[in-house]
Design a protein around this nucleic acid. Structure first.
Lengths: 199, 199
DNA sequence: GGGTGTGAAACCTTTCACAGCT
DNA sequence: AGCTGTGAAAGGTTTCACACCC
C-alpha cells in the first residue's frame, strides 16, 4: 500500500514528503505511517521527511520487485488469455514465460506471443526459465491437479482464479481470488450501503 | 467466510456442528466462532451446537444472498467474456442481465447468450432490469468514465478489474481487484516463504 | 455430559506526545 | 523550527473460563 502511494507521488514529481503530508494526501494517520515505515528501517530524515525515491526503492527491494519474476499460466481459456495479454505481465518485473493447457485444440496455437504447450512440458519450462510464479486459470475441477503440477515443478507462489479450495503444500503458497466470494461481498454492500470499502 | 464453511459442511451432509468441531475442521478458534456467531444473534443450541442449514440461511439473508442480483458487465474483451460465461453469474443469486462495450465491432455480437449493446443503452437496461451490481472489465483509461456511467444508471456496487484508481461517488461503492497488486503480493511471498496466506 | 454465550484477562494495534536529530 | 522514531496510553480483538442451558 505504501509502495502504491509512493509511486503516485513519484508520478507527481514529489521528491520528499513528511508523514503528515502523506497522511493528508492518502487519508491515513501520520503516526501510523511513521510506525510502519520505521519498522522497515530508519528511512526518514528528522526535520525533513521521507525521500520518496529512496523509500520506494527500499520497499520495492523488500517486496522482491527489483528483479524479474517469470510467470507460467495454466489454462488458456478466456481468463487465461486475458491475463496473458495483460501489459503488467510483459514488463521487467513480471514476465510470462509459458502458457499451458490440456486441450489439444489449444495446444500449438499462439496467444500473446507464446505458443500454448501441453501441461506435460510445464516442469521443463519452469526448470529452464527459473519461473517461480504460477497463475491458475483452469476450471474448478482441474485446479488441484494443476496446482500440484506447479508445485512439483518448483513454483513457489500460485495465484488461483478457479473457484476451488486448493490443498496447499509446503513451499508453494496459494492466493485465491474467488469471483463468487467477491460478488457476495458486493451483494452485501449493495444492500448495506454503509459498508466501507476494503483498502 | 463462515458461509463458505457452512456450505462445505452442507455438501458433506453435516446437519449440526459444535464450535469446537468447526474450529478443528477449518483451522479457527472455537471461542472466536462463538463470539462471531453470537453477534449475528443467538443461533447455537447449548449442549448441541449449531444447526448448519438454519445458520447458513440466516447468514445468506444477512448478506442479501436470498434474492437475485442483476449484474451488468461493461467491457467485453477476454476478461469481460470470461466473467460473463462464468457459471456463478448465471444462477439465481447472480444473473448477468446485460453486456456493454463501446467497440462497434463487438456491439451486436452474442456472448454468453446476450447481445452486446452500446454503453449508451446501459442506463435503460439498468432501469428496466433493476440491476444493482456492475462489473468493470474495460482498459484502465476507460475505467472512470465507465464507473460514472454505472453510478449514473443507479448501480450501487461495482467490481472493478481495471488497474485504475476509481474516484468513488456516494451511493456507488467500488471493490477493485488490481492484478498488478496481487502479483506483487505474490512476488513478496515467493521470496519470503514464511508469509501466511490471506484467508 | 456437552456446548453455547459472555464477562474478564491477555494480547495486539493504533494514537498520543515528546525527546532528540537535522 | 520541523519532523522522525519511539515509549506510554488508549483502544480493539482474541482467548480464557465458567455460569447457564439443553
Amino acid at each position: 500500500m505504501y509502495l502504491r502511494c509512493l509511486r503516485k507521488l513519484q508520478t507527481e514529481g514529489v521528491e520528499r514528503i513528511s508523514s503528515n503530508a502523506m497522511a493528508q494526501r492518502f487519508h491515513l494517520s501520520s503516526s501510523q505511517i511513521r510506525k510502519d515505515l520505521a519498522a522497515f528501517g530508519e528511512f526518514g530524515i528528522r526535520g525533513v521527511g521521507y525521500e520518496v525515491d529512496a523509500l520506494a526503492n527500499h520497499l520495492r527491494e523488500l517486496m522482491g520487485l527489483d528483479r524479474t519474476h517469470g510467470v507460467v499460466v495454466v489454462g488458456v481459456g478466456n481468463l487465461g488469455t486475458a491475463l496473458s495479454r495483460f501489459p503488467g505481465l510483459q514488463r521487467d518485473t513480471f514476465r510470462v514465460v509459458g502458457l499451458f493447457d490440456t486441450d489439444p485444440a489449444k495446444v500449438g496455437s499462439e496467444v500473446a506471443g507464446h505458443v500454448v504447450r501441453p501441461t506435460e512440458e510445464l516442469a521443463d519450462v519452469v526448470a529452464e526459465t527459473g519461473a517461480r510464479l504460477g497463475i491458475l486459470a483452469v476450471p474448478a475441477p482441474a485446479a488441484q491437479a494443476s496446482y500440484d503440477l506447479l508445485a512439483d515443478a518448483g513454483v513457489t507462489a500460485v495465484l488461483n482464479f478457479a473457484p476451488a479450495q486448493i490443498k496447499e503444500r509446503a513451499g508453494t503458497s496459494v492466493r485465491s481470488i474467488d469471483i463468487r466470494v467477491v460478488l457476495e461481498e458486493l451483494a452485501h454492500r449493495s444492500i448495506a450501503l454503509d459498508v466501507p470499502p476494503t483498502i
